[in-house]
């Protein structure tokens, strides 16, 4: 809209390119033989001239069975400033020029676990690179919009 030309609007920039390294984090020791947790940090910044509202953010992991069926990867996305135990993303404000970090939490489960200790490690080692899409539904002073970015992840 022409008004944006005069006043500007909010704009979200997700910085996925240089930050797609997953970090293994300790999980429940009782499940360590078949569950491994990872975190991926995704910096973002409001590069627009107006305050940004991130209404919602979510991710999509593109690792279908056709590509690799040894692991199940569940995930949820949250802001590092608002850690939650559930899979809910709480809407938040981001002033112009400021930024933060999204944290993608991945739980990798060996799907065909039979009890062998190194089964999960082997399945992760054999896992191919896969894409992850991050979406953020945003609002500035204009229409709501969805910002999307894709990065490639390698677990091992």
């Amino acid at each position: 809209m022409f008004i944006d030309l005069f006043f500007g609007d909010a704009k979200l920039k997700l910085d996925v390119a240089s930050h797609s390294k997953p970090v293994a984090v300790p999980g429940d020791s009782a499940h360590k033989n078949f569950v491994q947790n990872y975190e991926v940090t995704i910096p973002y910044k409001n590069v627009g001239s107006q305050e940004l509202t991130i209404l919602d953010a979510w991710a999509r992991v593109y690792l279908p069975d056709e590509q690799y069926a040894e692991l199940t990867i569940s995930h949820h996305l949250q802001d590092s400033s608002k850690p939650r135990k559930d899979d809910y993303f709480e809407a938040m404000l981001m002033p112009a020029g400021k930024g933060g970090q999204l944290v993608l939490k991945l739980q990798v489960i060996a799907r065909n676990y039979t009890g062998a200790e190194d089964e999960l490690a082997k399945a992760i080692a054999a896992c191919p690179e896969f894409d992850v899409a991050v979406y953020a539904e945003c609002r500035g002073r204009g229409r709501i919009f969805v910002e999307k970015d894709i990065f490639t992840l390698k677990l091992n």
């Binding site: 008004i3 006043f7 107006q50 305050e51 609002r139 002073r141 204009g142």
Partner: peptide
């Protein structure tokens, strides 16, 4: 569904205000 006037008039209010968005 915000209309033209909602987009235009909402811009007159400071960003922190509750009616500063067209919605």
């Amino acid at each position: 569904r915000p209309g033209f006037w909602a987009f235009a008039i909402s811009r007159l209010f400071p960003a922190k205000g509750s009616i500063s968005s067209p919605y």
